[in-house]
Amino acid sequence: MTFDILVMQIFSGFSLFSVLVLMALGLTIVFGLMGVINMAHGELMAMGSYMTYVTSVVFQRYFPDHMGWYFIIGIGVAFVVTFAFGFLLERCFIRFMYKRPLDTLLATWGLSLVLQQLFRQVFGPKEVTVPTVQWLQGAWKISEGLELPLNRIFIIGLTLVIAAAVFLFLYRSRWGLRIRAVTQNRAMAGAAGINTARVDAVTFALGCGLAGIAGSSFTMLASTGPVSGQQYLVDTFIVVVFGGVESLLGTFLSAFAIGQTQISLEYLTTGSMAKAITLLVVIVLLFLRPNGLFAAKVRR
């Protein structure tokens, strides 16, 4: 392996890390707060991808001169729409199923099927083409043989920005304070005057919004079709479970570990083998630490 390839491999590891973080962030927050396992998380990402697609179509038709901006706007649209959808979903559907984790599992899985068919009806069974904006096409050529794809650099940057924003929101804002209070002790927080129902709705919506952003940025890497969400779901769950389901830091570290491991193994073996070995390692580690890398230490 030459130096160039080594650098590109490490970069790929970072890129996969950022992709995994984007996928898992929303799910971690929702699961940590409400104990809801949202099987429709993948479809919410697909919804974000489709919103980006819709934005691109609108720009192509009405503002063809400003195509370069569509992607930034698209990410915003994806966030707003999935956030709003998540809010409605929590109010009309999820909140009736708290404290029934198995039922939520089934219900959200059913929801994912409904959403898939909805995408199929609205956008057709085939994948749609989401154009990559001009300034994110191609690679940053550092030297002959050492090239870093611009879209991956963008996704790494986006992940850092989103992660920082989520951190500030959770640890430096009043809403964050409420969310953390409810996460730690729902009854006590309620007694102290926090409207836990609203905190639930906002958190769930936030989780969905983050899924939307993830889906939006993945249009540059992968396909946008009715079943695209399924491609992400398994990886997302592995990251969340491996990291310790309630810990943001755990999610980061597990995404990093899985990302680098998988990328290195893919280089040394084949893609299928790498995935199998990664899963095996995760299973063994979960066997040793059943609550994941960073289990929250709370009294139950």
Partner: peptide, 21 residues
Amino acid sequence: GEDYLPLGNIEFSSVINKIKA
């Protein structure tokens, strides 16, 4: 080189690096 990826795989950066190498 001969490489197989699971159906639905969306991460190809390692394969691409292998092709480059």
